[in-house]
């Protein structure tokens, strides 16, 4: 499954809720306000590092850039993708949007 999270982890439980359902080989994709989860030094850094042990995590580059976050501020091993990359991920796995 492709878990897509679009809400900020600071205002919504969507990230946490999605992680309860994440299994081996699943992908986590952060879009819109969900990208704040991947900012270094934030409250969710350790949580995401834990996810990265077993799963790939992607961030939508358009949303990262729009929010003034530099690539260097993104937690290591979280990969940035564009909309075409987004489309590819949906091809790979069945998406569920966690709003």
């Amino acid at each position: 499954m492709l878990h897509i999270v679009k809400r900020s982890p600071y205002e919504s439980s969507a990230l946490n809720d999605s992680l309860k359902y994440i299994k081996e080989k699943d992908i986590l994709l952060l879009i819109e306000d969900g990208v704040y989860s991947a900012k270094k030094g934030g409250k969710f850094e350790n949580l995401l590092k834990g996810v990265l042990q077993n799963n790939e995590v992607f961030c939508l580059i358009a949303d990262v850039k729009a929010r003034g976050i530099e690539g260097s501020e993104i937690i290591e091993n979280v990969k940035l993708i564009d909309y075409k990359g987004f489309v590819d991920k949906v091809c790979e796995q069945n998406p569920l949007m966690w709003a």
Partner: peptide
Amino acid sequence: DRNALREKMDEMKAFLP
């Protein structure tokens, strides 16, 4: 429980959240 529900999810073609 979560695990059992997740197994059901794996059978789905589409989700409507």
